[in-house]
Each structure stands twice: as C-alpha cells, then as structure tokens.
C-alpha cells in the first residue's frame, strides 16, 4: 500500500516534470536550441506570484500574473537570442551562441529576483492545504490530481495543435528547414515567437502548479525541477513530445522510488546515471525516433 502511495506521488510530481520537459523538447525539436532559461521562467512564475500576493493581490490573479511574466520574459529571450542570431547569420542553430545567451538570461533572471524579492525561501499562501481525497487508505491531493490532468491535457492540446492547425504545420516546416519554410511563404519571424510563447506558458503554468501544490518557493526552485525535466526529455528522445511525457513521468517515479528505498542523498545517481546511459547507448531516446524536427544532431 505504501508503494502504491509512493507511485501516486511520483506521478503527481512527474506531471510537473512533464510540462517542463515538453517546454525543453519543443525548443530543441523546433529550433535546435537547448533553452536554459526555462528554469528561470518556471521560477519567475512562482516568485512573481508570491511577490504579488505580498502586495495584496488575490492569489488566483497573482498566479496568472506570474504566468504572464514568464511568457513575457520568454519573448524577451527570443528577441535577443534566436531572432538576433538569425538576422545576423542567417541561421541561429549553427553554433552554441543561443545556448550561451540563454545561460546569460538564466543568471539575469535569477539574480534580479534575488535583488527584488530576496533570497529567503517563501511560502505561497495556497488556499488548498488539506484538500485530500481518500481512496481506501490512499491519499490523493485534489489540486495535485487536477494539476496532473491539466498538464496532460495541455500537452495533448499542444500535440493536436502541432499536427492539425495551420500554425502547427508552419512550426513543423520550420523545424524541418527554416530556409525552405521561408520560401514556402512561412513568415519565420512571426512563427518562431510562438514557440517561445508556448515555452513561456508551459514553464509558467508548471511553475504555477508547483507553487499551488507544494507552496515552498525560492529563487532557485527552477534548477532542480529543470534538471529532472532534462532527464525526462532525454529519456523520451530530444524533440519527441510524447516521449517527454513518458520520460517526465518515469523520472518522477524513479525519484520517488529511489528516495523511498535508498534515501534522498542518493537520488542524483540513478536519475543522472539513467540519463547518461541513454545518451551514450540510445541517443534517440527509449521510444524510437519520432521527433518533430528532422534530428539535426
């Protein structure tokens, strides 16, 4: 029974990892860009929401404000990394440049939050403290369950959007070949920001759900989650959305199980070991190569 309870909490935290992993995998698959600002966007969402509640904003509005801030920050990142490189070199994916700029933005965002909101761990005044749902002896947090369902629904909607809609087709054509997409009449400069809006929304909503469920927030809260999400992305194969979903859940389960059986200190080794092993042995991920992009690596 205890194991089953652990399984459930693994799936719950896995839902958060899934959203962040999808944000990572989307930018890699579409733009061949490992976007290190995602942990900062995740953190911005939670910390800005907390900052807004301290000045008396209602918690729901504050959370929306956090997500909006993350999305806006993501657009700023697009302006100074991807778009600039593309205008200047004709191809933004060639070098490590966007990766380095995104590390720069990660440092900027984290330390701006430290300057403005302080470095102390805070507690978000979450309205759901004891909304549990008992199934026999199992305890299921209702907000956590809603989060998991919401996370999966958003990712499902995203994959439908990519497959069916006009914008989705344009996005996939850019992933295939930006130059050919331009020749076919896709306006790259209007479509690429959409990827960053989606990234910002995904990371922001994940940050919001994390803040609502666990309430413990600080300026570095994104780093840990992003590390797990990267592991999930690699397990699923870079650029593969459904792989990222499975990978995120696998990482959540592995983490909870490793903590349960071996203690919290050792949790790094199984997760990163799994990641390294998959990178070396099967770089396309566990589920074969069905990436959105053409796999430019």
């Amino acid at each position: 029974m205890l194991i089953l309870q652990q399984l459930i909490s693994g799936l719950m935290i896995g839902g958060i990892y899934v959203m962040v992993a999808v944000a990572f995998t989307l930018t890699i698959g579409m733009l061949n860009f490992l976007n290190f600002t995602i942990p900062a966007l995740f953190m911005l969402s939670g910390m800005v929401a907390w900052g807004l509640t301290t000045v008396g904003v209602h918690w729901a509005l504050a959370l929306l404000g956090g997500v909006a801030t993350a999305t806006f920050a993501s657009l700023i990142v697009e302006r100074f990394t991807y778009r600039y490189m593309r205008v200047r070199y004709g191809d933004a994916t060639e070098h490590a440049l966007p990766l380095v700029s995104s590390l720069g933005f990660l440092i900027i965002f984290e330390h701006l939050v430290l300057v403005i909101l302080g470095s102390d761990p805070q507690r978000f005044p979450t309205p759901f403290t004891s909304a549990d749902f008992h199934l026999g002896k199992l305890i299921i947090g209702i907000p956590q369950l809603v989060s998991l369902v919401l996370a999966l629904a958003i990712v499902w909607g995203l994959s439908i959007m990519l497959k069916r809609t006009r914008v989705g087709r344009a996005l996939r054509s850019i992933a295939e070949n930006p130059d050919a997409a331009t020749l076919m009449g896709v306006s790259v400069n209007y479509i690429v920001p959409i990827v960053f809006v989606i990234t910002g929304l995904m990371a922001g909503i994940a940050g919001m759900l994390f803040t609502l469920n666990y309430a413990d927030i600080n300026a570095y809260m994104g780093d840990n989650v992003a590390a797990k999400a990267i592991a999930g992305m690699v397990i699923g194969g870079l650029g593969n959305i459904w792989g990222a979903i499975a990978g995120g859940l696998i990482v959540g389960l592995t983490e909870v199980m490793a903590i349960h059986f071996f203690g919290a200190d050792i949790v790094k080794i199984p997760i990163w070991g799994l990641l390294l092993l998959i990178l070396l042995v099967r770089p396309s991920g566990l589920f074969g190569h069905t990436a959105i992009g053409k796999g430019k690596f």
Binding site: D265, I266, K268, I269, L276, L280
Partner: peptide
C-alpha cells in the same frame, strides 16, 4: 570514448550528467 560518441547538445548534456554523477557519488 563513450562521451565522444555524442555531439552538440547531446555532448553538453552528457558532460553535465557526468558532473552530476560525480557529485552524487562524492556526497555519499
């Protein structure tokens, strides 16, 4: 030898994973 099988973003992630594993080992 295993590391150099990877390239680009994969290499960045593989070296990062290596460092995290080393940290995880020493801390235990």
């Amino acid at each position: 030898f295993p590391m150099l099988r990877t390239r680009g973003v994969y290499m960045v992630l593989a070296t990062l994973a290596f460092a995290e594993i080393v940290q995880g080992i020493y801390i235990n």
